[in-house]
């Protein structure tokens, strides 16, 4: 066991996968000697050499397309896009190729690639460095979208993503890359994809979230407990496909739900989760509330805090799901 932060856990998972399987290679901008702009790939080039840790030109379409070609040849590429804001050039490759190569060749060619990118705001970054547009990616058939929220889940989910026989977009919550640490066993054990994680059990309300917002949501749950509200917290973790069975079971128990995400409200995955709950008979006993980013451009550093979902907004939303029971 070692103390790891999320950034360390991701690095350890890649190193483990590369040591276990020579088909695994890493490519991206500055991933070599520089170790990536967030140092996530730090040291990999020394351990595994420049043949397996490839610095690429600044060409995101090319990086994703090369990864598709490598994957179709049976390699296991892990391609890094420096920020989610630079990933949009890869969407043509994800939609038109990575997500459909297996379907269109009836399994003759497949695409076991991982596309990693840091996402999300709250670090006072430059323009284009704070977005949370995972819903765009989760709309793409044939790919998986995974977002970890702790060092242990970062490690286990990345190993699962690398070993998965299909393409996985793995978004890293950069605000909490170094926010905390925990004991993580570098034992090569993967965690299941397509599965929500119940981080806290509760009876009164279900808080559904993912990524960096898990931090605020868990803090809100702690404060709610002191007010006598017993909140269950679910980390969705795999956003495509979503494990609705776990979420529905939880809300069937609590009757109330708040979805928390950094992404913009409209078209965000909170809407999908709310719709799926509404489609179930007798599950919801109060209005769904969503605590999300706004339908705006993510503000730059000075105004960013007004955009990011806060603990107090989560608390307010929870109370709104149960107006008759808990006075405001």
């Amino acid at each position: 066991m070692a103390e790891m932060r999320i950034v360390d856990a991701i690095n350890a998972a890649m190193a483990r996968a590369m040591a276990d399987d020579e088909r695994v290679i890493v490519l991206g901008e500055d991933v070599g000697i520089d170790g990536g702009v967030f140092r996530v790939t730090d040291g990999l080039i020394r351990k595994f050499g420049a043949d397996r840790v490839l610095d690429t030109p600044i060409a995101e379409t090319g990086i994703a397309g090369v990864a598709v070609g490598l994957a179709a040849q049976g390699m296991r590429p892990i391609a890094e896009i420096q920020f989610l804001g630079f990933l949009y050039a890869t969407i043509d490759q994800l939609v038109n190729h990575a997500g459909r190569l297996r379907t269109r060749t009836r399994g003759r060619l497949t695409c076991p690639l991982v596309l990693r990118a840091p996402y999300g705001g709250g670090i006072h970054a430059l323009e284009h460095h704070s977005e949370s547009t995972e819903a765009m990616l989760a709309h793409i058939p044939g790919v998986r979208v995974v977002i970890p929220s702790s060092p242990a889940r970062a490690y286990g989910l990345l190993l699962a993503a690398i070993r998965d026989p299909d393409p996985v977009v793995y978004l890293e919550p950069k605000r909490i890359y170094r926010a905390g640490h925990e004991e993580v066993a570098d034992d090569g054990a993967a965690l299941p994809l397509d599965t929500c994680f119940v981080l806290r059990e509760g009876r009164n309300v279900t808080l559904v979230t993912w990524g960096a917002m898990v931090v605020e949501t868990m803090m809100a749950a702690g404060l709610l407990a002191s007010q006598g509200i017993d909140a269950e917290v679910i980390d969705v973790a795999t956003l495509k496909p979503i494990d609705m069975a776990t979420i529905v079971a939880s809300v069937r128990k609590t009757g109330r739900v708040v979805v928390v995400h950094e992404a913009a409200l409209s078209g965000g995955l909170g809407g999908e989760i709310a719709a799926r709950l509404a489609e179930e008979d007798g599950v919801l006993r109060g209005p769904v509330r969503r605590v999300t980013g706004y339908d705006t451009v993510v503000p730059l550093a000075k105004l960013e805090r007004h955009y990011m979902p806060s603990i107090s907004r989560i608390m307010t939303a929870v109370r709104e799901t149960m107006p008759s029971e808990i006075p405001a």
């Binding site: 379409t61 994957a71 179709a72 043509d92």
Partner: peptide, 11 residues
């Protein structure tokens, strides 16, 4: 869009 795939295959 297949041109970068060819580079991946060749790589």
């Amino acid at each position: 869009s297949q041109a970068p795939h060819a580079v991946g295959v060749a790589l």
